[in-house]
């Protein structure tokens, strides 16, 4: 029984260590109208899980996701869920009427274009991609 408690304790420790490490590969970007310059990790999670739907000024949050490796990296570093868990979460929202599936894009170029043109939009890209006409939102 003691062993089980130790294993659980180590799991919790590692999960919390991970929660405080933000990805070095992925950055969050927002539309110029977004009224924040930085967000906490839990605020990012609440946005991408549809729990927070409005910015502080009352305007609507429009978030978008990518497909592929950058998406997986973003989920791991920011949302603390696997791709399967994130997909299952949004299917739950969809089939209980609580929300529609997130807008998603195949390429970072499409993502940057959507975020730059959509008021209240937030998304993410690889840090090597140019965040044209958007603003980088730091995540603590």
């Amino acid at each position: 029984m003691k062993k089980i408690w130790w294993i659980l304790l180590v799991m919790v420790f590692y999960s919390q260590m991970g929660a405080r490490m933000v990805s070095a590969e992925v950055i969050a970007i927002g539309n110029q109208s977004v009224p924040v310059a930085s967000l906490s990790l839990s605020e990012v999670q609440d946005i991408f899980l549809g729990k927070t739907v409005k910015w502080q000024d009352g305007s609507k949050i429009n978030f978008a996701v990518l497909k592929g490796d950058i998406h997986a990296e973003f989920l791991k570093a920011f949302i603390k869920r696997t791709d399967s868990q994130f997909t299952a979460y949004w299917k739950q929202m969809l089939f209980t009427g609580k929300g529609g599936l997130p807008k998603n894009f195949e390429t970072e170029k499409e993502m940057v274009q959507y975020v730059s043109e959509t008021p209240g939009a937030i998304g993410y890209i690889n840090k090597t991609t140019a965040p044209e006409k958007t603003k980088v939102i730091s995540v603590n």
């Binding site: 299952a88 979460y89 299917k91 739950q92 089939f95 209980t96 009427g97």
Partner: peptide, 19 residues
């Protein structure tokens, strides 16, 4: 008409794909 919250999974019990 909306789903009844009962435990963690009642609202999604009809959806086989999420469990």
């Amino acid at each position: 008409k909306f789903k009844i919250a009962h435990g963690l999974y009642n609202e999604t019990r009809d959806i086989d794909a999420v469990r």
